[in-house]
Nucleic acid binder design. Structure first.
Lengths: 229, 229
DNA sequence: TTAAATATATGACAATTGTCAGGTTTATTA
DNA sequence: TAATAAACCTGACAATTGTCATATATTTAA
C-alpha cells in the first residue's frame, strides 16, 4: 500500500516527475498514504492545508457550497492529479472542498517539501506552472460554457467529458458513475432539471441508462446538440 | 514613452519584480511599447502569441466569442497585469481575445525571455505561479457565481467589483466605464436583460446613471441583494 | 451639420429553468 | 429480511431570462 514515490507510476502524470531523486526521496519519507471511501471528504473549503494530495486511485470532486444550499462542482481530479496545490502556493485556505466520488487512495505530501522544491528546482516550478496553466484554461472554458450553453448542451458535454476522461466499461456504460445530484452540480442546474434531461436524452436515444449507470448511445447526436442543432 | 523596465513602477505589481537586474535589462532591450485605442484588439483567440503583454495603462477585456455570436468576458486586466502568460507557458494558442476597453499602453515582451527566465530563476517561476494561482481562484469563483447566483446578483457584484478595483470619480461614478453590452458579457446575460436590470436598480436607488456612466448609490442594498435579501 | 451607425431603452411574448409536491425505486442498515 | 433512508422520477406551476420588434438617444463619420 505505502510504496516508494520513486517507483510510483502515478508520478509520470503530474508535476512530481520533474523532481530529482533526492527530492523524491524526501517526499517519499514524509508522505502519508490514505484510503478514502466514496463520499468521504479529503478537505473542506475554508480549511488551511498543510500539504497537497496526490491521487493514486479513484476520483474526487472539487466543489463549493453556497449559503442557499447550492453546490457547484468546479472540476474532477483523478489518478495523477495533485489537489490543494493552488491553495498551498497562494498560501491561502482552500476555496474548494474535495470529496471522493469513488473509493480513493491518495498520498498526502507536506507543503514544506513542495515549497522548498519550488524555490530550488526551476524544472519543478515550471512543471507545476504548466499544470496550473492547463487548469486555468479549463476553468475559463467552464465559465464560457456556463454562460453560452444551455443546460441540455452542458449535460451532453458532461457525458462526453466523462467518456473521454474516464472511459466506458464493456457494456458501454461510463466507468465513472455519478449521482444525478452530482451531475446537476457539475452542470449547474437543479437536480430535477438534470433528471428530466436524462430522461429526455434516453427517450431520444442519445444515451442509455441502467440504474445509476449512464452510457452514450449516439455520440454524433450529442455532438450535434452541443453545436446547437 | 519607451522607458527602461528597470525603472518602471508597474513592475512592482507583477511577477517581473522577481527578475534580476540583468534579466530586466534583457527585457527592456527587447520589449516593444504599443499604444492602443479603446476597442482595438491586442490579440485574438486562436492566435499564437510570440510573447506576453504587460499593461502599463488602461484596461483590457479578456473574452471568448462563440459561434452563435455570444461573447463572454472572462476577466479584466489592468495596470501591472501580464496578458498572454497562460498561453505562452502552456505553449498553446490563446483561448481568449484581449480587447482594450479604454485607451491603453502595453509592453510586448518576447516569449523567449520569459521562458528562459522561468527555467533559470526559481523566484520568478514561483512569482508567476502565485499570480496564476490567484487567477485560478478567481476563475473558480466566477464559475460558482455563474451557477449559484441570479443575473441580478451578478450585476450587483459587477458594479461593486468595478468600484473596488478601479474606483470612482469625484462625482461618485465608476472610473471604468463599460458599455451595457460589455456588462452583459461580463455577467453572462442578454444585453436587454442587463439594461432592464440597470433601469430597475436605478429606480430602486441602488445605482445612479449619467449617460454611459454608472455610479453606486447604495452599497449596503447592493450587498444585501448579493446575499439574497 | 446632417446622415448613418451604434448604443440604449422598453414592451410583448416565448422558452428555459427552478420550485414544490408527490410519487417510485434502490440502497442501507438494524 | 424488514424497516428506513436515500436516490430517482414526474407533474404542475412559477419565476427567470431570452428573443424579437421597435423606439429613442447618442456617437461617429461623411
Amino acid at each position: 500500500m505505502s510504496s516508494r514515490c520513486e517507483n510510483c507510476i502515478i508520478r509520470q502524470f503530474n508535476s512530481l516527475r520533474a523532481m530529482s531523486k533526492e527530492e523524491l526521496k524526501k517526499v517519499s519519507d514524509s508522505k502519508i498514504s490514505k484510503t478514502l471511501k466514496k463520499g468521504e471528504a479529503i478537505f473542506k473549503e475554508g480549511e488551511k492545508l498543510d500539504g497537497v494530495f496526490c491521487v493514486r486511485e479513484g476520483v474526487s470532486k472539487l466543489s463549493k457550497l453556497s449559503e442557499n444550499g447550492k453546490n457547484q462542482i468546479v472540476r474532477l481530479a483523478s489518478k495523477g492529479e495533485v489537489m490543494g496545490q493552488r491553495a498551498v502556493i497562494a498560501e491561502e485556505s482552500t476555496n474548494l472542498s474535495a470529496i471522493a466520488v469513488s473509493d480513493m487512495e491518495v498520498c498526502f505530501i507536506p507543503k514544506e517539501i513542495i515549497s522548498n522544491t519550488l524555490d530550488t528546482n526551476p524544472n519543478f516550478a515550471v512543471e507545476v506552472l504548466r499544470h496550473m496553466a492547463h487548469d486555468l484554461r479549463e476553468a475559463d472554458d467552464v465559465i464560457v460554457n456556463m454562460s453560452q450553453k444551455t443546460v441540455k448542451q452542458r449535460m451532453a458535454e458532461a457525458f462526453l467529458y466523462l467518456k473521454k476522461n474516464y472511459g466506458e466499461d464493456t457494456d458501454g456504460f461510463l466507468t465513472l458513475t455519478l449521482s444525478r445530484e452530482d451531475y446537476s452540480n457539475v452542470v449547474g442546474t437543479a437536480t430535477e432539471s438534470c433528471i428530466r434531461i436524462i430522461s429526455e436524452f434516453k427517450k431520444k436515444g442519445l444515451i442509455k441508462t441502467s440504474g445509476k449507470k449512464i452510457g452514450i448511445a449516439d455520440e454524433r447526436k450529442l455532438l450535434d446538440l452541443i453545436e446547437g442543432f
